[in-house]
Design a protein around this nucleic acid. Sequence first.
DNA 1: TTGAAAGCGCTACCAC
DNA 2: GTGGTAGCGCTTTCAA
Lengths: 358, 358
Amino acid sequence: MSSTSRGAKRAIESRGTLAGPPRMADVAALAGVSKMTVSRVLAGTGVAPATRERVQQAIDELGYVADAAAGALSSGRSAFAAVLVPSLASSNFSDTVRGLTAALEPHGLQLLIGDTDYDLEREERLVRSMLRHQPRCIALTGAQHTAATRELLVRSGVPVVEMWDLPASPIDAAVGFSNTKAAREMVRYLCERGYRRIGFIGGASELDRRGLERLKGYQQEMKARGMSERVVRLGESPITMSHGAPALDKLLQQWPDTDAVMCVSDMSAFGAIMQCHRRGLSVPGDIAIAGFGNFEVAACCTPTITTISVDAYGIGAHTGETLLAALAASDGNGAGKPARASLRKRVIEYTVIARESA
Amino acid sequence: MSSTSRGAKRAIESRGTLAGPPRMADVAALAGVSKMTVSRVLAGTGVAPATRERVQQAIDELGYVADAAAGALSSGRSAFAAVLVPSLASSNFSDTVRGLTAALEPHGLQLLIGDTDYDLEREERLVRSMLRHQPRCIALTGAQHTAATRELLVRSGVPVVEMWDLPASPIDAAVGFSNTKAAREMVRYLCERGYRRIGFIGGASELDRRGLERLKGYQQEMKARGMSERVVRLGESPITMSHGAPALDKLLQQWPDTDAVMCVSDMSAFGAIMQCHRRGLSVPGDIAIAGFGNFEVAACCTPTITTISVDAYGIGAHTGETLLAALAASDGNGAGKPARASLRKRVIEYTVIARESA
DNA sequence: TTGAAAGCGCTACCAC
DNA sequence: GTGGTAGCGCTTTCAA
């Protein structure tokens, strides 16, 4: 656009030489109909079969691709749905994104995916950036957000679902489970198996809220049973496989008689188990190790890892359904009731998967 | 918009009662300037400090968020960059996406991320869908696409980079490496270590093109050395951890004297190693096992896995830079030279990481 | 079933 | 440094 003015660009086109991609008007001209008819063909609404055929041919011939920005501007509604996850690298969250995609894509929604990197400030920036595209709905991870993020979200009037947690006061709605309760359940499981000197391995930073919730659950249940805590926190959250080994070493150094370890995730549990192998400790003979999340590695590793299974894909799928319901509700109303009014909390089940390691 | 007409909506607003989110005109009115000045403040161009201050206050007070669709339509350029990867669940590809994000986000580009699920038809649908949003540039994975995809891409005039491979005739440019050569290098490494009866474990389907390239490399090098092939293909590509165990069993059943196994990725290598543990085979004492990709598990597992390290993040980062260069070039030109003209192939280095398993 | 006109919210362009 | 005007490409609305 540096050498051609707006007017000039169209002028060229009207002379038959296309400057840039074809527009709806070009399709209309080629098919001998009005723009409106082309628009109707694209939308799949009331056009005579013969006309539709001609228009479709013109579309194919020109390789026409409708401009979504213009459509969104004109109709007042985009086809975007925004999703924010802490990390795309975690299979847990990528499964959630897959679930969301499966639910929303068939309804013509295009996902705007963002990776917050476990950073609330970055989440705020991403929310602001995504809001510029007028998404129809938003899915966030977790209950923790900056005040500005909440404000932006509330003001946007767009239905919001928070995933992977059950916030006390959600922005609109939530689809998740109590990480604290789930962790308590794992402690209970270990106790039933006869373990009493149970340690916990988790990350050192405050970034991974769900990890902190799990630690809290461990602490609550240990306290309730009058057992003393053995907590090792090490590495930037969320800790990965490679942190498992040093964390196990530190735990055994501080409390050598530990008979079971509960890890904040299967990743660190795996690292810890590998370290046990290196130290010549048998799992669970010498020490039991449990994980969280039921990642693939937990089922493949030797010994297989006892863990808590969470339906990550289901969280995404349910979130998608919840969001769709909200959109349908707001379409039905006289634009008065906001979409979010129809949203509710939805609790996702989790289960302890007993395997070889604990 | 079901009960209020377009005109009515604005009319309400002009009476002071906002129907819907604030617009630029509302900000302008509140700040006592024209829309253009607000637009300039947002763009960060030539506005007197005092004016800027007032406008910013109005923006904050109203919680104004500019509409990207309107901006894109008016300026003729969106702020989108499209990325298509086969799977978000693979840390390899999510690292590539992170690299792309790091390169493009600082330039104000918003990533449109798509997951093709290793499906070329789905890739075509996603490309079509993304093209509707007029992305400034596109990054795809692999060299294989449907004819329609190529046509769509070429017609769009948008710079395209294909990642993770070095296509013979790229659409525009490529950032990747030869998976075939890399695999040959691993065979050579194993030979240097004295292994001769080398097997290969990979997926059964044709979906994972890069996996097939690696198989080809194995076959080429084995043939060149006059060694006979031992190939097990099992499971939907890309095969994961859980396929490693049955594949190893099958390989040893068919060729019991195998002394080394090269796996299509670290995932299957890990599964194979775990199966060796179960069978009481020592790695590499009884059998050597090598992977591909240098995933985290390769460094954490016991024994640590010999593998080929590929800079997945770097592929994304370089792709981002390549794309940015193309955009800058097209901005500089008199809109004549298309952006893609300045694109070239870029070869990414890989190295064999010698670890314990082979 | 089809078309014409108006306008969505913003930015390029040119005046001042 | 600032404002007015004219669209960007599409869909809504209403008339034929």
